[in-house]
Design a protein around this nucleic acid. Sequence first.
DNA 1: GGGCTGACGGTTG
DNA 2: GCAACCGCCAGCC
Length: 104
Amino acid sequence: MDNTKFFKRVYDIVSQIPEGQVATYGQIALIAGNPNASRIVGYAMSRAPSNQGLPCHRVVNREGRMAPDHVFGGQKLQRSILEKEGITFMANGCIDMKKHLWRF
DNA sequence: GGGCTGACGGTTG
DNA sequence: GCAACCGCCAGCC
């Protein structure tokens, strides 16, 4: 854990997010040890390999919203996956953080 | 080695 | 209440 870099740490944390729950970039950054490095988390995700069991789709911003279309290849796709995992979306397209915010 | 970029967050206007 | 700016840190060119 401590022998790994911030990126690796972020990946480890994200991979620990249980199904049906979501985590925010800020929270992940906080767990990783840098509450202000929320941007790094997003950057790490952009560079995160999708073949490591990394549920990047469970990582959303503070609003409970997902990244622009170009990241997951389509927000609709991510939304579809999240809904399939039990995530509840509001009419405005945001995740119900009150019910699905991850607590470690 | 220096500078730019980046899936954010919080504060201020 | 909404919009815009600044600030943060680490990776990558």
